[in-house]
Computed example of a mutant assay.
Amino acid sequence: MQLYNTLSAIERAALIEEAGKERLTISFYTYAHIGNTNIFRNHLFINWNDMDVLGRIYVAHEGINAQLSVPADNFNIFKEHLDSISFLENVRLNIAIEQDNLSFLKLKVKVRNKIVADGLEDNSFDVTNKGIHVGAEQFNELIEDPDTVLVDMRNHYESEIGHFKNAVTPDVDTFRDSLDIIERDLADHKKDKKLVMYCTGGIRCEKASAYYKHKGFEQVYQLEGGIIEYTRQVEKNNLENKFKGKNFVFDHRRGERISEDVIANCHQCGEPCDEHVNCANEACHLLFIQCPACAEKMNDCCSDACKEVHELPYEEQKALRKGKVVSNKIFKKGRSEVLKFKK
């Protein structure tokens, strides 16, 4: 039985373009106790492959985290399948603010130790014992309260291009780093301050809220559905939008514009810009912010050294990489000494 992709990303993109049908980019998650993760993974792949679902889905004993695209024509069938699974019935689906038919080009359903890489070895708290979920209207009220501490639970490269006003934005590379920093900085306010958190779609905040309750914080809140759902509610209910800039997303779009504010800068020249790109040198692939002028000047590369390599014939580039352990800098997300204007 086929439980893997048979088409390359290029072949899949061509088929999607040829079909000319709209696709919906969707994300969802839930924390639940899943017994046999391999059987569950295979069940999802078999059913979703038949529906032409594409995306990146993680399954663990603690739940599921899914980012995917589905043909609009198959959405109702997809939703019926979710509802047939007890812990996914009526799960909140975050539908992307900006749609792109090519947001995902393969179906990857992977079994992981956790659905959020948190680095925690503390198994003494229940991830389902979460904080209070609030919608956009209550969130707006809470973050104006002087007794509230608003914390962005995302990483530095995400908050750099967009965040809520007055939010604490830890300069961290991982979710795990944020947990320790926030607990340390708010150690004296576990009882008297409201800890309000937000992230892209809610999954990191959900785990963080359970963790901080376990650590003794008494007033823990999280933005229901994250920035994606907040934006939808703001538009639907004509609320004030307190988010500035773009929301970083984890598909090839790399960002959805939430407000017209551009709060970041090109990492190479310092001009206002919030467009993330990957260095065109395949041996680098560094994620960084680059304006159109620098992209043209640098041939889509992050440095002169990478530009020189990228301009070589492809076979020479392959030969330079052969036999070497190349650190893929995409995981460093903008941490490089060649970026002069990185915040």
Rank of each mutant, 00 (worst) to 15 (best):
R257H: 13
V277R: 06
C266Q: 08
C279P: 05
P272G: 04
H276N: 08
F250R: 02
E260Q: 15
R254D: 10
V277D: 02
E256C: 10
H252L: 10
Q268F: 14
V262H: 00
E256K: 08
E275I: 15
D261C: 07
E275G: 13
E275Q: 15
V277F: 03
C279T: 03
S259D: 01
C269W: 11
I263G: 03
I258H: 00
H267N: 15
S259W: 00
H276D: 04
E260T: 13
C266K: 05
E260A: 14
D251S: 06
G255K: 07
G255V: 05
V277G: 07
I263H: 04
E260W: 10
G270K: 01
H267A: 09
N265L: 10
D261S: 09
C279I: 02
S259Y: 00
D251Q: 06
C273V: 12
F250H: 05
Q268E: 15
E271K: 15
N265W: 01
H276E: 05
C273D: 15
E260M: 12
G255A: 13
V249H: 01
R254V: 13
G270Y: 02
N265E: 13
E256W: 11
E271D: 15
I263C: 05
C279S: 09
D274P: 04
C269Y: 11
A264K: 07
H267I: 08
H276P: 03
H276R: 04
E256Y: 13
N278G: 01
H267L: 07
Q268T: 15
E271Y: 14
G270M: 04
I263M: 07
H267V: 08
N278Q: 08
V262R: 00
N278R: 02
V277C: 05
A264E: 09
C273Q: 14
A264Y: 09
C266P: 09
P272T: 03
E275L: 14
D274F: 07
Q268L: 15
F250D: 02
N278F: 02
V249Q: 01
C273T: 14
C273A: 15
E256L: 08
P272M: 04
V262E: 02
H267D: 13
E260R: 12
G255I: 07
R257Q: 14
